Amino acid sequence: MFYKIAPEYAKNTLTNIHQVFNMMIREAVRDSYFKDNPIHAVNLPKKAKKKKVEELDEDLKDMKFWEKEEIKLFLQVVSRKGRPRDLAMFLLLIYSGLRIGEAVALTWDKVDFKKSEIKVRYTLFREKDLKSNYELLSPKTESSIRNVPVPPQVIMQLRILKNVQEQVKNDVGELYKDEGFVFTDNSGMPEPARNFNYRMTTYIKKAGVTKITPHNLRHTYASLLFAAGIDLKEAQRRLGHSSSKTTLDVYSHVMRETKIESVIQFNAIANDIF
């Protein structure tokens, strides 16, 4: 319960809720409604741990991103050679700007198929990269809790992935641990971010495009936003930045290049006219 509501409330509020529940249960135990306190051992969700959560901060020294043609070549290779969850993941990262930790933490109830929207509420933390030892934590900042619109291609591939996952569940049966995650292995466990990183490297070699990381796809998304004419405030909201200054600081050079490209395109139109 606390992990589900943690992103929506401050730590003090969660502490108060925890204390009230404990008090109620203790009274129920005293009056013989329960044999013992079922939430006695429940701990409040931890805050994200620096540099251990499966996400990276904006890195000004690593501002690589793909141009449209490189995106196309990469996705063509993943579509031909990859698994449905790979194509769904990379489409999601490219067209939503999610951090990889936010993506692997995504659950189906946070995918709004009708509105074509992704609800970012958690990031996934793994202790020493152990497959089964993970926690859902609140994202890095309050502004990271956001709803991000995505294009039809993303929603379509997520629908395909959901159908594939249902088939895996039927094949595996009771051995499948269904916790509602979107990106899982064949046992139902959330797949580690590093797996997507490894496979992305393989696809990049086959596509012959610039070598980048899953986090660089967030920069790629930002470049697409600015190329599409999305204003700064909206870009800030979609990227989950705490202020528009952060967006400016990180992507000022991308915006500058887009502005230059826009001027060139406008001049070309003017030349065609007169």
Rank of each mutant, 00 (worst) to 15 (best):
S244Y: 11
F183W: 10
T201C: 04
H40V: 11
K162L: 07
I269W: 09
L87W: 04
I118L: 15
K206L: 15
Q76R: 12
T141R: 07
P151G: 09
N16F: 02
P45D: 08
T184V: 15
K128I: 03
M156K: 12
V77P: 02
V209K: 10
K11R: 12
R256Y: 02
S262D: 13
K140S: 10
P152W: 05
Y176A: 09
A270E: 10
P151Y: 08
K47R: 14
G82Q: 08
Q153A: 09
P7Y: 11
V111K: 00
K119L: 14
I212N: 05
I264G: 00
Q76H: 06
A10Q: 14
V120A: 02
Y203W: 15
L161E: 10
E257N: 13
L14E: 06
D272K: 14
M23N: 13
S187Y: 14
L175A: 12
D231A: 08
Q165G: 10
V111Q: 01
Y3Q: 13
A10F: 01
M24A: 15
G82P: 05
D185C: 07
N147H: 08
W66A: 00
L91M: 09
P152M: 11
L75T: 11
L136Q: 12
Y33S: 08
T123E: 11
D112Y: 08
E191R: 14
A105R: 01
Q76M: 06
I71W: 02
R159L: 14
E58D: 12
I260D: 00
W66C: 01
K11Q: 07
V164N: 13
F2K: 03
S96F: 05
E102D: 12
L73Q: 11
M23F: 11
I155Y: 02
V77I: 15
E54S: 14
V104Q: 03
I100Y: 00
G101Q: 00
Q76N: 12
R99D: 03
L248W: 05
L137S: 02
F65I: 06
Y3L: 06
R30Q: 13
S79Q: 12
V148F: 06
F90V: 05
